[in-house]
């Protein structure tokens, strides 16, 4: 019993350490500028209050809604074009150039353009999220597809595989890990661009908007609280949800080594 607790602690303590470190910084900030920077106590109690407040959950809900549409679409499109590029080298050359150019433009730069073309509301934000996560996803999958081991393909051909079988049984499974790692990388981009886009205007709900609004009305404990919430949600989604998904889907990478000797 004790050893499983110790093992669990061994994995989890860095998270607590980070949280503690940040809260200490916050508290030091409060002591240095007490009027402006809220104490840890005030921030936490504000968070607890808001957890019971439906307005807070509406902010969270809208952000998640936009993420939940924009990010998966980007993953599917990015994966599709990445694999296509792996199969057609000429297209790969084009796609690389295209990604290199587009990635130099910060995704929220598109927002003013999208607001005019699509109007206000959720759609421009969703499009920004999609743009932000499409390119890293496509690039990661493209690299994964190009990295498929030629010997594996040859072995399958000798075994009598036709083209569809090569695709299904070798090419796609070997590219699959790149889907997962690509999804993890693009998640960060998606989240950051989501919050930034919500801050830039065009919407009146969402975590990014809430942070900006709290700042504008000098609701500092709200500002700090929303910063914490934004960070925590992203961490949980990335390091817990996506990471667990990765371990489950790629379990063959994580089996213990050398059991069979």
């Amino acid at each position: 019993m004790k050893s499983t607790l110790l093992k669990a602690w061994g994995r989890v303590w860095p998270y607590f350490a980070v949280a503690a470190f940040l809260l200490i910084l916050l508290q030091i900030g409060h002591w240095l500028k007490p009027i402006v920077i809220p104490s840890v106590g005030a921030s936490i109690s504000r968070l607890v209050d808001d957890l019971n407040n439906s307005a807070f959950w509406r902010q969270v809900g809208l952000s998640m809604y936009r993420l939940g549409i924009g990010y998966p679409i980007a993953c599917v499109l990015g994966g599709f074009f990445g694999v296509l590029a792996g199969l057609y080298p000429a297209f790969a050359k084009f796609l690389r150039r295209f990604i290199a150019f587009m990635q130099s433009i910060p995704p929220i730069v598109w927002l003013p353009f999208l607001l005019v073309v699509l109007g206000f509301g959720n759609t421009p934000i969703i499009v920004v999220v999609t743009i932000a996560s499409f390119f890293p996803m496509a690039l990661t999958v493209l690299n994964g597809a190009e990295g498929v081991n030629k010997t594996h393909l040859e072995a399958a051909r000798v075994l009598g595989a036709n083209k569809p079988q090569l695709l299904r049984k070798v090419y796609l499974p070997e590219t699959f890990p790149a889907f997962i790692t690509g999804a993890q990388v693009s998640f960060g981009n998606a989240w950051r661009s989501l919050v930034a886009a919500e801050m830039m205007g065009g919407v009146a709900v969402g975590l990014g908007f809430a942070v900006k609004f709290a700042g504008e009305i000098a609701d500092m404990s709200g500002v700090v609280m929303y910063i914490l919430v934004i960070g925590i949600i992203a961490s949980v989604l990335d390091q817990v949800v996506l990471e667990q998904l990765k371990r489950r889907l790629l379990h063959w990478r994580y089996v213990n080594q050398g059991e069979g000797k």
Binding site: N149, T151, H152, E154, A155, A156, R157, V158, L159, G160, K169, V170, P173, E174, F176, W252, R253
Partner: peptide, 27 residues
């Protein structure tokens, strides 16, 4: 290539995401 003339590679060329059984049964 044909399964009539099977080639054994220098570096086994097994599919790492498949079990022994699935690898052997691939052809």
């Amino acid at each position: 290539p044909s399964p009539d003339r099977m080639l054994i590679f220098q570096e086994h060329a097994l599919l790492p995401w498949s079990t022994v059984e699935d690898n052997v049964g691939l052809g």
